[in-house]
Structures are given as C-alpha cells and as structure tokens.
C-alpha cells in the first residue's frame, strides 16, 4: 500500500506492506538508520521517534498508521549545521556510551523541553522511564538534559568537539 508522511520536514511516499512497522519504514525503506530497536514487546524505548512532536515507540506503530503525520528522527534533530542543545548536552555531560539508546533518549528529551523548558530531576527521570539504557546508569543522561535546559540556544556544530 502507498504510505505518505512527513519525515524530518520532507514529504515521503512509499509503497509498503500494510504490516510494516514504522521503525522498519524509517530504517529500511528510507535508510534512516539512526533510529534503532531493542526488543519485541514495547519495553525498551530504543526505537522512540517523535510523531507530531510526541515520543512514540516506532516498533509499536505501523507505518500505515503514521500516514499523514509528521515524524522527527535523530537525523532531524540538528538544524542544518547547528546541533540541538540536547545533542550538545549529551556530548558535554557524557550522556552516551555505546550510543544505541541515545537517539530515542534525545528525542524524548527534546519533546520534554518543548513542553517544559526547566524540568526538575524527578520530572526528567520520569520522562525517560520508558526507555532503557544499559551503559550510563542514567545520571549523565539526566545531566545532559539539564545541560540542554540551561543552554537553550543552539550551538554551531563546528565548535562541538574539542577532542
């Protein structure tokens, strides 16, 4: 069936099986492999993307169900060459190690900060509690999101790495 949606600001239209999961539509049909997956039971949150600005587990939504909606993935976080403060925060505060859960975590963080620019630690922890990170123990993810809250202006990406 033909499925059309907006992904990272671009209208896309593809012929897919009705059963195709959104995560596979993004990763395989569109080649946007920044969205990962980690389970079969909607528990791990690795596959989180924003649909109409809201964090959604893309393994538990059909591509067909997403037709007509706006999807934002990690590839759409940076604004051109300018990183989102959340991306910057994750680098500053070591909010990632293997990087596998990171795209989902960052997108949830973005949605949280859009709703609530200055969340407290408890609010941040609750917001990311549908997503599992096996590397960081979460404290640095919390700090990364706090960093982003404290630095709402985006930083140019050519200054992002010092080492």
């Amino acid at each position: 069936m033909q499925v059309s949606m907006t992904v990272n600001g671009t209208e896309v239209s593809r012929d897919v099986e009705p059963r195709q999961l959104l995560v596979h539509f993004l990763r395989e049909t569109l080649g946007l492999t920044g969205t990962h997956w980690g389970c079969d039971t909607s528990n791990c949150g690795t596959c989180v993307v924003l649909v109409d600005g809201v964090p959604v587990k893309s393994c538990t939504q059909l591509a067909a169900m997403t037709a007509g909606h706006e999807v934002r993935t990690v590839e759409g976080l940076a604004d051109g060459g300018t990183l989102d403060p959340v991306q910057q925060g994750f680098m500053e505060e070591h909010g990632l190690q293997c990087g596998f859960c990171t795209p989902g975590m960052m997108l949830t963080a973005r949605a949280l900060l859009d709703r609530q620019p200055h969340p407290d630690e408890t609010t941040i922890r609750e917001a990311i509690s549908g997503q599992i990170c096996r590397c960081t123990g979460y404290a640095t993810i919390v700090r990364s999101i706090q960093w982003a809250a404290a630095h709402p202006a985006a930083a140019p990406s050519d200054q992002e790495v010092r080492a």
């Binding site: 395989e28 492999t33 920044g34 990962h36 990690v74 976080l77 680098m91 990087g99």
Partner: peptide, 22 residues
Amino acid sequence: RVQRKEDPRFIRGRGRYLDDIV
C-alpha cells in the same frame, strides 16, 4: 576530561551498527 571522539556521529544517528549495514 576530554569529550569523546565517537560522540559526534552517535548524536547525529550516524553510528554504524550491524543492522544498519546493507
């Protein structure tokens, strides 16, 4: 304390994990 050299690709979703390879 130095920021990680691997982070710029990961935070852009440009890591290359096994299932990303076609």
